[in-house]
């Protein structure tokens, strides 16, 4: 067929500079168009506006007795809010930073010492540690114990023993008044 019909050839093989420019322009615009199509397709999978609107939650602390932990759902995950006893506070503050694998002073994690607020997600593989309910095992350090792979957290939610690499994270929160805290 080569002699009869023009052979298959690129768009801009001949025909001078003008067409080269046009083909280039079309190619560039086609690329832009592809990006412009793919971008919103990807963005649709981001959190939607109603999900973002639930990014913070308010917790009333007045009903939590000393020694009690409540579990609040925040952004789809559990948050532990613990009203710590004097003993627990003392234990948390007494721990030397040298003993910790993820050193962080208790005063940084709980600015208001009787309230400890941490995300209840084990930093190893995402399980929820036990220790919030009465009768739960609380591990060797009196805080939380993750049943999945045996991580022990202390009364400040810091990792003390086991495979987890880091302390239970402290979410950003703000005390709106003495008994009302906004998480997130």
């Amino acid at each position: 067929m080569a002699d009869a019909a023009p052979p298959s050839e690129s768009l801009s093989e001949d025909g001078g500079k003008r067409r080269d420019f046009l083909v280039l322009a079309a190619g560039a615009m086609g690329g832009m168009a592809t990006v412009a199509v793919v971008w919103p397709l990807i963005e649709t999978m981001n959190p939607s506006a109603d999900v973002l609107a639930l990014a913070s939650t308010e917790v009333d602390l007045s009903a939590i007795e000393e020694g009690q932990t409540i579990v609040v759902k925040w952004r789809g995950r559990p948050v532990f809010v613990r009203h710590r006893t004097a003993d627990e506070i003392a234990a948390a503050q007494a721990a030397s930073l040298d003993e910790l694998s993820d050193p962080q002073p208790d005063s940084e994690r709980a600015p208001q010492a009787q309230w400890l607020i941490v995300e209840g997600v084990c930093t190893h593989l995402g399980c929820v540690p036990l220790g919030s309910k009465l009768g739960d095992p609380r591990g060797e350090f009196g805080g939380w114990f993750c049943p999945c792979h045996g991580s022990h957290y202390d009364t400040s939610g810091r990792i003390r023993k086991g495979p987890a690499p880091a302390n239970l994270p402290v979410p950003t929160y703000e005390f709106l008044d003495d008994t009302l805290v906004r998480i997130g």
Binding site: P40, L41, N46, A49, V51
Partner: peptide, 9 residues
């Protein structure tokens, strides 16, 4: 209303 570019899709 809430999904990013949802109306376009």
């Amino acid at each position: 209303r809430d999904v990013e570019w949802g109306w376009l899709m």
